[in-house]
Simulated scan of single mutants.
Amino acid sequence: MLLISRRSRHALFTSAALAAALLVAGCGDSKPPSHAEQMQKEMYPFGSILGGEGGISLFGKNKKSGEGEGAGIGVNSFLWRASLDTLAFMPIVQADPFGGVILTDWYTPPDSPSERFKVNLYILDRQLRADGVRVSVFRQQKTGADWRDAPVAGNTAATLEDSILTRARQLRLAQQARGNE
């Protein structure tokens, strides 16, 4: 009868578990989700809204619509341009048109040097929809030599989202007017 020591059984079990884990890990998608996709999954756990139409096409026309080949941006072009227009007064640290993410650096208003603001903006859809943009606003106040987090007025993010949506509608109407000429 073959006797296997306790230590050998443990090593055999550990090796088998490691091999199984590596095998299962190899079956997954190798591309991690973008930040916008991750935000979209957290906000809409029961369905995707990123699969809509209306994004910008950088390298040709949309394949789905039969207009040729190309890869498009995953966000609405009007929302993207409106977001950049609306946040133009703030220093932008990151602007990712493929993921729909715009991150600003701290901005200190000229009339209020003891406070500063920062904005994280996520465009979540290819369609011009009211729920296609999410804004997070952060505020800090200067206390002595240190900056301390401070509360932001409750309607600040919503007001910024409304401004972006209004600008996006203006851009869409202006493009439609040019197309009718």
Rank of each mutant, 00 (worst) to 15 (best):
T108E: 03
W80I: 02
V135R: 00
A158F: 05
V24C: 06
G99M: 13
L23E: 00
M39L: 09
M1Y: 04
G179P: 07
S65V: 14
A157R: 00
L128V: 01
M43T: 13
A150T: 02
R81C: 04
I73G: 01
Y44H: 15
G74C: 03
S65K: 13
N155R: 11
R9E: 10
S163T: 04
P110Y: 03
Q38K: 02
I49R: 13
Y122N: 03
L160C: 09
G179C: 07
K63Q: 12
L58P: 13
S163A: 09
R129L: 11
D125A: 10
Q175S: 11
A11F: 15
G26C: 04
G70Y: 05
E115L: 11
L58T: 11
S65C: 02
M43G: 09
G144C: 15
G51K: 15
G68P: 04
P91G: 01
E69I: 13
K41Q: 14
A177P: 08
D131F: 10
G99D: 11
V137N: 05
A157Q: 07
A153D: 15
Q94E: 06
L124R: 00
K142E: 06
L173G: 14
K142I: 09
S112E: 15
F138D: 07
G100M: 07
N62Q: 15
S65T: 12
G66Q: 13
G47D: 11
S112T: 14
G28L: 01
Y44G: 00
L18Y: 13
Y122L: 06
I164K: 01
A168F: 06
R167W: 08
A158D: 12
L22T: 01
P97S: 02
L171G: 07
D162V: 01
P109Q: 08
K118G: 07
D149N: 15
K64D: 13
G68H: 01
A25H: 00
L22N: 01
L79V: 04
I123H: 00
N180H: 11
L165E: 06
G70S: 08
S163C: 13
A177K: 14
T108M: 03
V137P: 03
G60E: 10
I164R: 03
R148C: 10
N62T: 08
W147C: 00
L128G: 09
D29Q: 12
R139Q: 04
V119S: 00
A153R: 06
S163W: 05
S77I: 02
K118R: 12
G144R: 07
Q38Y: 08
G66N: 06
P151A: 09
E53H: 15
I92Y: 01
S30H: 05
F89A: 11
T104A: 04
S15E: 04
Y122E: 00
S30K: 03
V137K: 10
P32C: 06
F98V: 08
